[in-house]
Amino acid sequence: MPVATINGSEVQVDDEGFLANPDQWNEELAEALASQIGINLTAEHWKAVRFLRDDFKQTGETPTIRRISAGTGIDIKTLFVLFPKKPAKKMAYIAGLPKPRGCV
């Protein structure tokens, strides 16, 4: 995996730019990743991102949007507003996790 810099820190990323090692993630990095894709993280964004981190720690898998909605109480419609167009992938990117594996 290539080493690259995001916001001055050196991290491993895949070809698309997703963090290759979730352990290299921190909250400052999340802000930088979000701003690179035009998202300014509010408290509600953070609620989702923190859920992704916690859930990944427990299950070893990036949660799907359905699971994120159930786990955070943020409805799916709102997730589409917070992370427009491709919410599941954008959330995974900001949380420093791989793209979700499941179909639903």
Binding site: V11, V13, I37, Y93
Partner: peptide, 12 residues
């Protein structure tokens, strides 16, 4: 020197 990481294309 490491280069800046690529930014994924989310089709925006």
């Amino acid at each position: 020197e490491p280069k800046p990481a690529p930014v994924p294309d989310f089709g925006d």
